[in-house]
């Protein structure tokens, strides 16, 4: 009866090893970086959060409201908001992430020119708003109008691309937790972004990180805010459902 017993043991182990458990980004950090991320007095990303608070309170023009003018105290009104993005904009039917929603608000309600993706002000404001959801679980919607965007994002994640002919899933599902050169491969959830990345010496957006991923497999780098990355962002956010927001996180 030895063989069936070991087979049964194998069957018990296999599902755990193959059905990937998605772990938050902080689980893949070194103890030192995790400590840095959790210590706000030392976390350089908090400089961006503080700048974001300034932008939040700043009146853009004489007759236009500041962010705070409509939304009030971000600690209350913006709590949990970032966990629901990307989401479909009801009026336009477009998929918007937090950055694009801020830009929409700035152009339509404040009547100002867009900050521009990856501009210091937009990064700071996004970090500030995302910070209000820190440690809250991700809860994006993928049904209804979001379904086609989600399907496209999931297909993108599993599609081989670039000269190296690699799909996102081959690293972030199949080899998560193993080392790739000097770093540990994470599950590739975007819950830490905008994040302070040591390689950048600065806070950057998820799309900047995705562009680095695309470059890594020598694939096409899509533009900031491109539909391809937005769809992928929705899939990544769904993949991270229930995991805590870490933004602004510290990443290598």
């Amino acid at each position: 009866m030895r063989l069936p017993a070991s087979l049964a043991a194998l069957l018990l182990i296999l599902p755990a090893a193959t059905a990937a458990e998605i772990r938050p980004g902080r689980d893949f950090l070194s103890p030192e970086l995790r400590a840095l991320q959790e210590d706000e007095a030392r976390h350089p990303g908090m400089l961006w959060v503080e700048q974001g608070e300034e932008v939040w309170r700043r009146t853009p023009a004489l007759d236009k409201p500041s962010c705070a003018g409509c939304h009030g105290d971000a600690a209350g009104t913006m709590r949990g908001v970032a966990t629901r993005y990307p989401m479909v904009d009801r009026a336009s039917g477009r998929l918007l992430n937090l950055e694009l929603r801020i830009e929409q608000c700035r152009m339509e309600r404040q009547g100002q020119p867009a900050f521009g993706y990856e501009s210091p002000e937009l990064l700071a404001l996004t970090a500030y708003i995302a910070y209000q959801s820190r440690s809250l679980p991700m809860t994006v919607r993928i049904d209804g109008a979001a379904a086609p965007f989600f399907d496209a994002g999931r297909a993108f994640f599993h599609e081989r691309q670039g000269q190296l002919n690699l799909a996102c899933s081959q690293c972030h599902d199949d080899n998560a937790g193993r080392r790739l050169r000097g770093d540990v491969i994470s599950n590739g959830v975007g819950t830490g972004f905008p994040a302070y990345r040591l390689e950048w010496n600065a806070v950057g957006s998820l799309h900047r990180r995705l562009r680095a991923c695309s470059l890594g497999v020598r694939a096409v780098q899509f533009d900031y805010g491109s539909p391809d990355y937005l769809n992928l962002e929705l899939y990544l956010a769904w993949r991270a459902r229930g995991l805590p927001m870490e933004a602004p996180a510290v990443r290598r």
Partner: peptide, 8 residues
């Protein structure tokens, strides 16, 4: 942008 945060 030269700025600083201080905790005490």
């Amino acid at each position: 942008m030269f700025n600083a945060r201080v905790t005490m």
